[in-house]
Amino acid sequence: MTDPRNDDPLIDVHDVTKAYGEGPHALAGLTLRVRAGEALAVLGPSGSGKSTLLNLIAGLDRPTSGSVTVDGVRVDRLNETASATYRRSRIGMVFQFFNLLDDLTVMENVLLPAQLSGTPRARATARAGELLARLGIERHARNRPGSLSGGERQRVAVARALMNRPPLLIADEPTGALDSASGAGVRDLLRELNADGQTILLVTHDLTLAGSCATRTVELVDGRIARDVPAVTR
């Protein structure tokens, strides 16, 4: 994990272009640096390049040109196997629709990343228990996700994402499928995690979410950064 005393950015996207076929570039010479401990919200209309940027940082796609480095790893140079290892060890991902496995219990869902990484069962179970308690959902450990509210399911997804202690947490529209009360709970949770030192990359259309959680906001337009400003207050 990145040493927070290190001046090197946790995320370093340098002069990245991404082209799909003959159409306009999804990203056009984009450069972005994010330091450990920041909570960065990436905003922009549909087609602005938000999802492309997320996929490049997550190692799910490769740039046409330029470089992507996360926690000292040249993500754009990884093969498929190395990319999977990178995602297990260095990033946690939270999605709009939770992506939980309904045939597993809450505890079993949270344990999955540790099992894939080969963490000893006793240590993984202890870590999962700590996360469920921290996120206020330990009473649901033996339940299946379908019996939980949307906000509770998103907390399970966050616990799963944090299971392997990733330096970077990526949240892709984490409140998009939630009602206002559940969304507020997730906003509070992300703010608390960042206050504890977790670096967060938040991709969203939700200005309230960005305003309450982010220490910095970047707006993309046509694959370029149109605005990059620190938060005034949170």
Rank of each mutant, 00 (worst) to 15 (best):
S65T: 14
A122R: 15
L40I: 11
V73T: 15
L112Q: 14
D179S: 03
P45T: 09
H25Y: 06
R144M: 09
S65F: 04
L202E: 03
V73L: 06
D188S: 08
R142L: 12
A161Q: 03
A122W: 15
I11M: 11
A58Q: 09
L190S: 01
R160H: 12
R224T: 13
R142A: 13
A195H: 12
R187W: 02
R77L: 13
L101V: 14
D102Q: 15
L193S: 00
A133G: 14
T2K: 09
G129P: 15
A39G: 07
F97D: 13
P113G: 02
S46W: 03
F97L: 10
M163L: 02
L169W: 04
I170C: 04
N164C: 04
S117P: 10
A128T: 13
E38I: 01
V42T: 12
N143S: 14
T85Q: 09
L209S: 02
G47F: 04
M163F: 03
V156K: 00
L32E: 07
Q198C: 01
E130I: 12
L202S: 06
E22R: 14
D179Y: 03
R155S: 01
N6V: 04
N79R: 08
V68M: 11
L202T: 06
V106W: 01
V186R: 01
V232Q: 13
H25C: 05
H205T: 10
S89M: 07
F97M: 10
D76I: 04
R77A: 12
L56P: 09
G29L: 00
N194E: 03
D7A: 07
G197W: 01
L169K: 08
D222V: 05
L43C: 07
E173H: 02
G21V: 11
A177K: 07
G44V: 09
L201A: 04
K50V: 09
G23S: 08
L220N: 02
R234G: 10
T208C: 06
P145C: 10
I57L: 07
L135P: 10
S65M: 03
S212L: 12
L111A: 03
R142C: 09
D102K: 12
T85F: 06
R144E: 13
P45H: 09
V70R: 05
T31P: 14
E22T: 14
L220A: 00
T17I: 10
I225L: 00
Q198Y: 03
T217H: 08
A58P: 12
P230M: 04
D61Q: 08
